[in-house]
C-alpha cells in the first residue's frame, strides 16, 4: 500500500492543485457573471432595463405611419406607504415623436422617506428604443409625511423600434432607498413584509381618502 501511495503522491498533488485552480476559477466566474450579465442585458436590452441617466432626443422625422400604444403601470412596495400615479394610463405615440407625461408621488405615511421608482419595459427589446430625456427615475425622491410631488417623464420611441411591437408597457415600481448611512439598516428592515411599524396603509390603494 505505502509504496503505491508514495510513488503516486506527486501525481495526486498535481491533480489536487489542478482541481483547486478550476475551483477558484469557477468561484470567480460566478461573481464575474454579475457584471457580465449586466453588460449583456445592456447590449441586448433583454432585462427591460432603461438607461439610468438622461439621454438626448434623437432628431428624426416623426413616423406618422405607425402608432404605438405606450402604457404606464405603477406599483408600490410592501412597507413603503407611498403612492405613485400616472396621470394618463396610456398614450398613443408615433415613433420619433417626443412626449411628456406626468406622474404624482404621494407619501401617505407619517414619516419622511426616500424611495425611487425603478423602471422596467415590456417587451424587453423595446427598452433599447425608449429614450428618456427627463425622468424622475434617475434620482431618489424624498417626501415629507403627506407631501405630494408631480414629476414629468419626457420620452421618445426611436423610429427603429421593431415593426412587430405595437404596445410598449413601462412599469415603475417604488422601492424604499437608504436614507443615509445611519438609518440605512432600519429602512431595509422596515421594508420587509413582516413590518409591523404601522405603515400598512401603504400597500393598498386608497387610504388617502381624507388627504
Amino acid at each position: 500500500m505505502t509504496d503505491v501511495v508514495e510513488d503516486r503522491s506527486p501525481q495526486v498533488r498535481r491533480t489536487v492543485v489542478k482541481t483547486l485552480v478550476v475551483l477558484a476559477g469557477m468561484f470567480g466566474f460566478a461573481f464575474a457573471l454579475v457584471p457580465l450579465y449586466d453588460v449583456f442585458c445592456q447590449v441586448t436590452g433583454l432585462n427591460g432595463k432603461t438607461s439610468t441617466s438622461a439621454q438626448t432626443l434623437v432628431h428624426e422625422e416623426v413616423d406618422t405611419e405607425r402608432t404605438v400604444t405606450m402604457q404606464f403601470v405603477t406599483r408600490g412596495s410592501a412597507g413603503l406607504p407611498w403612492k405613485l400615479e400616472a396621470h394618463s394610463r396610456q398614450v398613443r405615440v408615433h415613433p420619433g415623436q417626443s412626449t411628456e407625461v406626468y406622474f404624482t408621488f404621494r407619501n401617505l405615511g407619517d414619516q419622511a422617506l426616500v424611495a425611487r421608482a425603478v423602471p422596467s419595459v415590456t417587451p424587453s427589446p423595446a427598452s433599447l428604443h425608449l429614450r428618456k430625456l427627463a425622468c424622475f427615475c434617475f434620482d431618489n425622491q424624498r417626501l415629507a409625511p403627506g407631501e405630494s410631488f408631480e414629476a414629468p417623464l419626457v420620452f421618445q420611441l426611436t423610429r427603429d423600434l421593431p415593426e412587430e411591437i405595437k404596445t410598449v408597457t413601462l412599469v415603475y415600481t417604488l422601492y424604499p432607498q437608504d436614507q443615509g448611512p445611519d438609518v440605512a439598516v432600519a429602512t431595509v428592515a422596515d421594508g420587509a413584509p413582516g413590518s409591523d411599524k404601522g405603515r400598512r396603509p401603504a400597500s393598498g390603494e386608497d387610504p388617502g381618502g381624507e388627504a
Partner: peptide
C-alpha cells in the same frame, strides 16, 4: 446591504 438581486438597488 448589497443589491445583487434587489431591483430597488439596481440588481436583478
Amino acid at each position: 446591504g448589497t443589491s445583487f438581486f434587489n431591483a430597488g438597488g439596481g440588481g436583478d
